[in-house]
Design a protein around this nucleic acid. Structure first.
Lengths: 350, 350
DNA sequence: TCCGATCGTCGAAGCGTTTCGACTAACCGG
DNA sequence: CCGGTTAGTCGAAACGCTTCGACGATCGGA
């Protein structure tokens, strides 16, 4: 491992000159610069990251706080990670993964105080998330993938759940569906203050009541079994349902299975829309699912880019909501039996 | 940010004494130790990771080289990552994610020479993988998740594909199936030297010919569409098939869909076994898939633990194969029409 | 022609640790 | 009571980089 010293000696300049060539902090004559670069090439020199980090007090590492929750890691979350890693890599930063959740505040305090990371991105943000406070105390720049309840002075990137739900409901109502059930995450997850579950719930209620329809929400465990149970419950509470809107990426396959068992054709008898879903997952089902496709890796990328801008000083707080895009596939179609009650309450032209 | 200096001053000792308390390298009297610890607590002291790294020439960071391939990231690969992150975290190490594949050797050389990582784990290992050579040149300890063709002197953890395939074939043959099709990854993936695709292919051929059966393998693009195409092709080449063995986690749903379209009941007409699959994914299908469940996060954990042992000096090369466990669910049953040709060729008792 | 800027370079002082050599005091066996 | 360990502590020198202040040389303007 060649050091800067070796380069300086070989190029017959001082160490500081080598450093200036590297950082561009001060002007260097073309002749000298050439000599130095040549020496570097010859010695196969690479600056030592630790030494540079110590001197600059910047590690060029950003952290991704990725709690490994009960919910597990769906395709959507995985896309955040890969997007974040790519963005960091593009900017010459490294991305360290830490399985630190809203509970492990001591671990976080340690990580933050060690000054190993220049900034962090938080995943799986709870409505009230203690990690934000800890990071602010320790002065570590942060950006949320998700949102807390109070976001003043914070940077975040999140899915625009409100618009996403609204669009999904619009799509179904536009097809003539009136009896729509929303299958959310589990009751425990909702109680824990998981933002997406909360926000979509509220948006669903708003969208449905806006149409004068009854908003029926059913929680489901994050598994196929949970989905089946949820659909069973839905059929009991609303035997006349013609459409299901599902937030829960794991439960959706259970919902489809239970519909199959009950001989309700998709989309003939029941239309299904999957929310915040990656195309790859939507294509797995048969028929392929009409879905609100999540921004996926873009979310992770944007979050890290915002964080890096914050570190540079360029760009302060960045708050952005990305909508999911409706992609109509095979799991939705016009409602089966347009009852007479259907007319009247200001449906959209769709 | 309190430094060691501050602690030393407050505790009225020298800086080195504080360091000895922290590292335990030299004996310290109980009284002094207590004073120092108290000072640390009072100042909320955390050692600076960069400084420590510079002095010890160890960053306490390990890298996970995780190429973001065309193949994307299935549940199985995600499990590797989470397992690795957890293992690193448990040992007080950090895990940095680098999207460095077998192609980006320059990026890797840079990462390795910067001495930012103490060691690395390689994912998505190709049969001939240039990354191994680069890391060995730069003297960075490494462990493979997967295997190259020549593994002498290397540490690796991999799935025991041979046994996994054998068990799956045994299961099907034991149920009376004779006409079994193996759906592998895509032809391009195989050509690129992706180990799992190659090894399972060879093992399948060996297992089938061992039973005196014809080994029919069909490659499939890693998507539902690819799975459907593959099954169509299989039905053409072997209209009498009664069982499908699928390696391709993405294609499997396409296979099921195409079977449904062709009105071949699962498992009544065709039994399906999914290889190297997580239970969560197996449960998504209806009926739930009989599968060889992958060791998942255990693989990532074991790999990182082996790497850390290598860094400590305790433990040299670690080579380990983990089998997938057969979990019988609803997608397999005895073969439908036991033709007369079925008897004779030494079937297992099962 | 002289002055102040600017350019190009150097030496040295950090950055916050670890670790080596040295020193003192206490302790042990003879 | 003495020489040799050992326990406990200190100061200073690394580790490999950045950055500050200084200095000679060059240059443009009055």
């Amino acid at each position: 491992m060649a050091t800067m010293h070796d380069v300086a000696r070989l190029a017959r300049v001082s160490v500081s000159t080598v450093s200036y060539v590297l950082t561009g902090t001060r002007p260097i004559s073309d002749a000298t610069r050439a000599r130095v670069l040549e020496a570097m090439a010859e010695l196969d020199y690479q600056p030592n990251a630790m030494a540079r980090g110590l001197a600059t007090r910047r590690s060029r590492i950003v952290g991704l706080l990725m709690p490994m929750s009960e919910r597990g890691f769906g395709a959507t979350e995985t896309a955040f990670v890969t997007g974040a890693a790519a963005a960091a890599s593009d900017a010459g930063y490294h991305l360290v993964l830490s399985p630190i959740g809203a509970g492990d505040l001591d671990d976080l305090r340690r990580l933050a105080s060690q000054r190993m990371v220049d900034g962090v991105a938080l995943m799986e943000v709870q409505i009230e998330d203690g990690r934000v406070g800890v990071l602010q105390e320790t002065g570590v720049p942060l950006v949320l993938i998700g949102r807390t309840s109070d976001t003043t002075g914070l940077s975040y990137v999140d899915i625009d759940f409100d618009q996403t739900v609204r669009e999904a409901v619009d799509h179904l109502v536009g097809l003539g569906h009136r009896r729509i059930v929303y299958v959310n995450h589990s009751a425990a997850t909702i109680a824990a203050g998981y933002g997406p579950a909360l926000r979509t719930r509220d948006s669903f209620v708003a969208a449905m009541t806006g149409y004068g329809l009854e908003p029926l929400m059913i929680p489901a465990e994050d598994s196929a079994a949970g989905g089946r149970a949820a659909l069973a419950q839905a059929m009991t509470q609303a035997p006349d349902l013609t459409a299901v809107l599902a937030m829960n990426e794991n439960a959706i396959f259970g919902i489809l299975a239970e519909l199959a068992v009950r001989r309700r054709a998709v989309p003939g008898d029941v239309s299904v829309v999957s929310m915040v879903t990656s195309p790859a997952v939507a294509e797995l089902a048969y028929p392929a699912l009409t879905a609100m496709t999540s921004p996926g890796s873009a979310l992770g990328r944007i979050a890290v880019e915002a964080l890096l801008r914050q570190l540079d000083g360029t760009g302060a707080h960045h708050q952005q909501l990305l909508p999911c895009a409706l992609e109509v596939r095979g799991s939705t179609c016009p409602a089966a039996r347009p009852d007479n009650e259907l007319t009247g309450t200001g449906l959209p032209g769709g």
